[in-house]
């Protein structure tokens, strides 16, 4: 129950900025809608940055959620709550994650609606219809991918902030340095057989299947020029990769929680 109270408090703490975020998204959606309807359906391409922005959503939202405690002097109250650092931090993290989920879902819905609208304005509907089909079939993979990537950026900023509040003068630099070094080690680890053994299970999508869907589509239109796309890497997307990525997020959060309990200063 106390975790829930902390979670609700975090939602309220970030409520104003989250509402501004939603208003911004809706305003951008209206703007793009007008551009597509009045000028050119290719304006649909402008929605791509909206997805890219969500990669960094957790990074900045967690940074802001933590910074607010210190900026408004509530850190002394927050840190005096007799709950583990894990509870305090996960309440913050899950609240920000909830906001990310809503914001990203809205973005995907906006893109889908705009995609549908833009399709009407193309003289040849093959390409927009193809894009809509691909979006319907694989959009959820993109959603999950962006979501997990954003979760990872969230623990990066949380870690840097925790180190900054533990080591007074050079904390920011030290936290950033540790994160850069850890990321490099992690990338190296991804090249090992151990990593492959841990992650290569539960096939979600094979590059070959995706490419075949491209080929079949274009080739099936009689009289149209065909487009042939070859499989280049035989890349396969696994559930295992997502699970390991999420475990990494939990691990880093655990370290952050330890820092909050033992090293962080109000």
């Amino acid at each position: 129950m106390s975790w829930l109270a902390l979670y609700i408090k975090e939602l309220r703490l970030g409520k104003t900025k989250f509402l501004l975020n939603m208003i911004f998204l809706l305003m951008v959606a209206v703007l793009f809608y007008v551009l597509i309807e009045r000028y050119n359906p290719f304006f649909i391409a402008l929605t791509i940055p909206l997805i890219i922005l969500h990669f960094f959503y957790m990074f900045f939202a967690m940074l802001d959620a933590l910074r607010q405690e210190w900026k408004h002097n509530t850190a002394v109250f927050w840190m005096n709550i007799p709950k583990s650092g894990w509870q305090l931090l996960t309440a913050k993290y899950v609240a920000v994650m909830t906001q990310l989920f809503v914001s990203l879902s809205l973005t995907f819905i906006i893109i889908y609606i705009l995609l549908k609208r833009s399709a009407v304005h193309f003289t040849d509907p093959i390409i927009p219809n193809f894009l809509i089909e691909q979006y319907q079939a694989y959009g959820w993979i993109l959603f999950v991918g962006v979501f997990i990537a954003s979760l990872q950026t969230g623990v990066v900023s949380t870690f840097i902030y925790m180190v900054a509040k533990s080591v007074r003068k050079w904390g920011w630099l030290l936290g950033t340095g540790i994160m850069v070094a850890s990321s490099w080690i992690w990338f190296k680890f991804q090249e090992t057989a151990i990593y492959r053994g841990l992650t290569e299970w539960g096939v979600v999508l094979e590059e070959e299947t995706l490419m075949n869907s491209f080929f079949v589509h274009f080739d099936s239109i009689a009289g149209e020029p065909t487009m042939d796309m070859d499989v280049t890497n035989d890349a396969i997307l696994y559930v295992g990769t997502a699970v390991v990525d999420l475990l990494l997020v939990v691990g880093v959060l655990y370290v952050c929680a330890w820092l909050l309990d033992k090293k962080v200063e109000a």
């Binding site: 850190a75 002394v76 109250f77």
Partner: peptide
């Protein structure tokens, strides 16, 4: 711990 500064959440 009671801090010297205002440490309560002002939105509550």
């Amino acid at each position: 711990f009671l801090a010297e500064v205002d440490s309560l959440y002002d939105f509550y």
